[in-house]
Every structure is written in C-alpha cells, then in structure tokens.
Design a protein around this nucleic acid. Structure first.
Length: 216
DNA sequence: CCCCAGGCGTCCA
DNA sequence: TGGACGCATGGG
C-alpha cells in the first residue's frame, strides 16, 4: 500500500520556522548582487559563490555594467571558485547585458510576473529555478522556488510521487499557500536548511529530520 | 578514494 | 518526454 502523497504544508512551515528561526534570505546586498549570485550558485555550494562574489567586489566589478564590459578571460578568473567558469562567464555576461539592454531592473519590474519569468527563462543558462529565485528574491513576486533539496524532501517523505517534476512540485506548494512572497521566501530558505542537514541524496529517510511525523 | 553542491543545455531513444 | 551526460571548483 502506497502512502497518499499529501501533507499539511502550513504545519510544515510553522514547524520549520519554530525549529530554525528566520533565515533572512537571500544573502545579498541588493537585487543586482542577488541575481549574479543566483546564476553562480547553480549546482554549486554558496561558500564557493561567496569567493567569486568577493573577487568581483574587490575589483569593483560586482555589477551588471562592469560584468557586461568585462573580457571573458578576466570574468572567468574572477568567478573560477564557483565552478563551471567557462559556461557561467558567458551566461553571466549575457545576462548582465540583456538586463541593461532591457532598460535595467526598474524597467523589467514593469512586466507582469509570468511575462518576466518567460523573459528570464529565454536567456541561456536561466532555467525555472534560477528564474523563480530571481523573481521571488529580487522582484518580490510570489513564485515558489523548487530546488533539488525541496524536490528530494517532498519525495522522500512521500508528500509527492517520485515522478514529480518542477512544475508539479511548484503547483503543489502554490495551491496550499497564500501567494505571499515573504512566506515563499522564508519557506524555501528553511527547506534548504533541512536539505543540507537531513536529506542527502543517497541516504534513506533521516531519523533526525524534524519533518518526520507531520502527515495529517 | 568517493560523494556532494541552492542547475542547465544537449542529445538520444 | 524523459533519462543520461558534461560542465568544474572545493569541502567533507
């Protein structure tokens, strides 16, 4: 008998918030830095991204304008610690240039949420998670971010079947929660915290995970 | 030594 | 449409 894929997400959120406290995400000084970090942190630990961001900052290059005019070899040197530096340097430079050509973040913020999401996803190197992260954390739009941790947590706790993809998982969260960017922000950050500490890829269900026994 | 990290694009059945 | 694979540095 397979357990029904269901769970009280509001209860999950309250439990996590009580257990871990507010996470105060995204760890960036502003939307520009947030967006740069979002690209660099793809499949990469934030610790390594911080080194790349520090390199850019110390050279006064932590901005779209600087990155858009930076020669690729120099940009690669700066972001090397964050991995995939050949791919990411091209994609980051193209992203910075595209934002500038679109009139900057102020101009982009005029777009409707789903149009803005489509605009970002059209850029090479920006997929659903990166786009949703940017929209939630830089533009304050109520899109729930589904990362590898979130998907793994949902499946391992049997909230969702193993066939669940990004869109289905996002729908699962969106349908149960009020579309409040502040809640989405905090919830996603808390799930990352759980993922790092209690939900590794090859391990079975972790006994110490605070999410155990939360089914209705 | 192996595993993992706050993904994405490409290729192929 | 979905599953493999490459991309790359750095830490446990």
């Amino acid at each position: 008998m397979v357990k029904e894929p269901d769970c009280n997400l509001i209860k999950v959120y309250e439990t996590l918030l009580t257990t871990f406290g507010p996470q105060n995400w995204w760890p960036a000084e502003g939307p520009e830095e947030m967006i740069i970090g979002a690209l660099l942190t793809q499949n990469t630990t934030w610790k390594n991204v911080e080194k790349a961001l520090a390199n850019l900052r110390s050279h006064n290059q932590l901005s779209f304008s600087a990155i858009s005019t930076l020669p690729l070899p120099e940009l690669q040197k700066r972001i090397k610690p964050s991995g995939y530096f050949r791919q990411k340097s091209e994609r980051l430079k193209a992203l910075a240039t595209a934002i500038i050509n679109a009139g900057g973040l102020r101009q982009l913020a005029q777009k409707e949420t789903l149009d803005l999401r489509t605009w970002f996803i059209a850029l090479k190197g920006v997929g659903p998670e990166t786009a949703d992260s940017i929209l939630l954390y830089a533009f304050k739009r109520p899109l729930f971010v589904i990362d590898a941790y979130t998907l793994r947590i949902c499946k391992r706790h049997n909230w969702l079947p193993s066939s669940t993809d990004y869109a289905k998982a996002q729908n699962y969260f969106s349908c149960q929660l009020a579309p409040d960017p502040a809640i989405f922000n905090e919830f996603h950050a808390l799930l990352v915290q759980i993922g790092k500490n209690f939900c590794r890829p090859k391990n079975p269900l972790c006994k110490k995970c605070p999410l155990n026994h939360l089914l209705d």
